[in-house]
Amino acid sequence: MSIFKHELKRNQSSFLTWTLAIGSLLMICIILFPEMKDEMSGVNDIFSSMGSFTSAFGMDKLNFGTFIGYYAIECGNILGLGGAFYASLQAINMLSKEEKDKTAEFLLSHPVTRTRLVTEKLMALIFEITMMNLIIYLWAMIVILIIKEELPLAQMNLLHLSYYFMQIELTGICFGISAWMKRGNMGIGIGIAMTMYLLNLIANLTTSVSFLKYITPFGYCDGANVVSLGHLEGIKIFIGMIFCTLSVLYAYIKYIRKDIY
């Protein structure tokens, strides 16, 4: 487990920065709710009558005046996008950074199988993503209790679980790309997270491309959908996990045979 521990230590500061950033934004958003609530009756009408913009963000399906409606859309975007960026960036660099920083030669001239290296690095990623989600989840609950709103536990569980799946899927996809790249590239990580997010917005806009929801992981963690359905969309998550698994398998196959210059 030396590489696992080494990796956690190495990523400590970025883990803390991202968790803190997402946590604080989420907190600000939640704290704003009581103030917004009083003006919501008017706002709700406006938000639900902005045409395609309304449907893109799922505001036609939710009542902004209720806490869970507000939380699913506002906080969902923060945790959804923030988490997606964090997961993608960490994963895209995880394997390739050794080559980019030229530390791969040091690491791989030790008696460590490539399989072990890939496994421990993947475990470190999953551990970090899981910890980040747990901390944010607990933190959100604490803040909600502080502003004395009723805790919508069932819906929150569904929302946070779907974001977690989404981040795991993006982690897997970016991890596969990381095995293939020779140089770390943050641009690709951000690009993938952003593209997936936009694909979901487009799918929300027009039903003719609703199949996109089966491709992007944001398809199954769309807050409005999750809350209005009241359960997770198993098929979409299943498809997502297949993408994720294939990409991770690719990472193993590729990295085991990779030449280190």
Partner: peptide
């Protein structure tokens, strides 16, 4: 050297 050490196949 890199081939001997298995850094390259």
């Amino acid at each position: 050297i890199r081939t001997l050490l298995g850094l390259m196949r």
